[in-house]
Each structure stands twice: as structure tokens, then as C-alpha cells.
């Protein structure tokens, strides 16, 4: 299946495929620093293991961006 991660197409062979799997596949090192949206809907952290991603789904990673400005 093809999914869209941050607007970029990505081919996924694994089935079933959860949000948690996607974070691993994309080597998100600190999942605590990211919020996930699936087709525009916020995904709760406790649902990462259970919510499945399907063909054509759009996933956005929203990163915490704070400082480093001081």
C-alpha cells in the first residue's frame, strides 16, 4: 500500500501496520517529541499500538519545537 507521511508517498509492505510500526519504520528516535495526525485527526499516544494505517492514509508528524533560542 501507499501512504503519505508528511506529504511524501511511502510504500508499505507490512500488514497489519500500526501507528507504532510507522514510528519505528521512520526511525523516530524520540516519539515523546512528536504528535501524530492520521487523516487530519489527532491520534492519542495510548492508541499508537492499536490504530491501523490503511492504503492512501495521510499521516503527519508534528514535532515539538521549543527553544534553543536563549
Amino acid at each position: 500500500m501507499i501512504i503519505y507521511v508528511n506529504g511524501e508517498p511511502q510504500e508499505i509492505k507490512q500488514q497489519p501496520f500500526t501507528v507504532a510500526d510507522l514510528l519505528v519504520l521512520n526511525q523516530v528516535e524520540m516519539p515523546e517529541m512528536v504528535s501524530v495526525q492520521l487523516n487530519g485527526e489527532f491520534v492519542k499516544r495510548e492508541d499508537y499500538q492499536t490504530i491501523q494505517i490503511n492504503d492512501g492514509d495521510e499521516i503527519d508528524f508534528l514535532y515539538f519545537m521549543g527553544g534553543g533560542a536563549r
Binding site: 517529541m33 504528535s35 489527532f42 527553544g67 534553543g68
Partner: peptide, 19 residues
Amino acid sequence: SFPEPPPKNAVPTCAEAGI
């Protein structure tokens, strides 16, 4: 979109981060 602040130990330190 960001219900809770990130855990303290996950925030990159200022020295690591840079801008």
C-alpha cells in the same frame, strides 16, 4: 495537538540544539 509538555529528559539541551 500537543496535549502535554514533553518529558523533561526528551527535550534537547540548549547546547545540543543550536539555532
